[in-house]
Nucleic acid binder design. Structure first.
Lengths: 229, 229
DNA sequence: GCCCACATCATCCTTAGGTATGATGGCGGC
DNA sequence: GCCGCCATCATACCTAAGGATGATGTGGGC
């Protein structure tokens, strides 16, 4: 029925990006720890960025590849658990691996509840650390893939006019054109026109398609970052 | 458009069930612990059932009210973490609170990963225990409410004939009646009839409604048990 | 044997959805 | 001031969906 037209327009991905190595961010106030972790991970082919304090950590703004954060809990002037919760609150979906030399069960519970993938006791075992990092990177790759699938839909949604977004909401709520027209104080024909333009812009092949897009945009979107294990 | 008709048929709930007190199952091999937890929780108004071993625990088959499981890790002949993972594997969605006198960080990580809500170190503090249990019961109430919302839909879906289920799948995939007819080797009119019966039986007010029901039945359904925190 | 649920198809009619063409008006940028 | 985007509405036409009525056939249960 509805043929897709404006395909392959301005997608964001720069065509044939070479596969960047996964990035591991290390936030620990002990220079020795930072150094040893960095050399270990670099030897395994990871990119590594290290930070001594939370203020240094500007989240590698590069969200262009799979990444994870190795986060120490005892940061001297700051608490890693607080920082982790702050990240989660700001919807920063990077997988977190917590580390501590003085960890206990309540701290572990708190960290895991906040979404940490693992909690490693210091001194760190190379094998354990590598396994945890590999797992975290794998999780982030899955998360990024799912997020990328949403990206196209979200871009198309953002390209709609306000009226079109409004009508998309009412259409996917199950209202008929005439009900929408009455609700918005429009004539039915105007609704049809907006609806047609909206459906074409969203590249929806059917109403069912459109409903699923709306569900993804509305329902998931915000929560997706936490439920990806 | 579509008026709901066969409302209030054979719903499962026995009309005006008195609100049963939440049930706490306690699985611990120490009789003293079982006794003290039981008396504490009973004083707070909870129903309590205690078990000394995993074989005794038949999950209070009564899934007719909010519940949670207080699970000791050191069960003598069995391991609480293994048992918890077994429960999760069998899709038994009861919230679990782990307890241990010899817990460490790796055990905590494992338990939390498997979906435990909390991990309490023994000796237990009354306040901490009560807070954990209250929280778990609250979580289970939310889970049960969400699950109940699905129940009606699932019942109606199961009441469909095979043909109607088949057509529901194709309708919610976005196919037009004539496409469905071709796919199934039927005439379009027959598809319309099945579709009409199906939509009425599902009590769907619109196609959008139907698509969401199909999404819930297909996509959530199995996973809902684990993502309910 | 009869009844009922299920499935199948036909004809007829109404409503809803989708598109094309054309027209008007506001608003912002060059 | 003109052009483009957006929004609005009208007329007309076509397709899709939904419902009513009627009919045929099959299989299972009492």
């Amino acid at each position: 029925m509805l043929i897709r037209q404006n395909r392959g327009g301005a997608e964001t991905a720069p065509e044939n990006a070479p596969p960047l190595p996964p990035l591991v961010c290390v936030l620990d106030d002990d220079p020795d720890i930072r150094g040893s972790i960095e050399s270990l991970l670099r030897a395994e082919g990871f990119s590594v960025q290290t930070y001594a304090s939370t203020s240094e950590f500007v989240m590698c703004d590069s969200v262009d590849r799979a990444a994870c954060l190795l986060l120490d809990i005892n940061l001297g002037d700051a608490n890693g658990l607080d920082f982790q919760e702050e990240l989660a609150g700001n919807e920063i979906p990077v997988p977190v691996i917590l580390m501590s030399g003085y960890g206990d069960i309540p701290m572990t519970v708190r960290g895991m509840r906040a979404g940490a993938l693992d909690f490693l006791a210091k001194p760190l075992s190379d094998d354990v650390l590598l396994a945890a990092v590999s797992d975290a990177i794998r999780k982030d790759e899955v998360r990024r893939a799912a997020s990328a699938a949403l990206d196209g839909t979200r871009q198309r949604y953002n390209a709609l006019t306000n009226r079109e977004r409004e009508i998309m909401g009412l259409v996917t709520a199950g209202l008929m054109n005439k009900q929408i027209a009455a609700r918005l104080g429009l004539s039915e024909i105007t609704v049809k026109i907006h609806r047609g333009n909206m459906t074409r812009k969203m590249q929806a092949d059917s109403l069912a398609d459109l409903v699923r897009m709306a569900e993804e945009l509305g329902a998931r979107e915000a929560s997706a970052s936490r439920f990806n294990r």
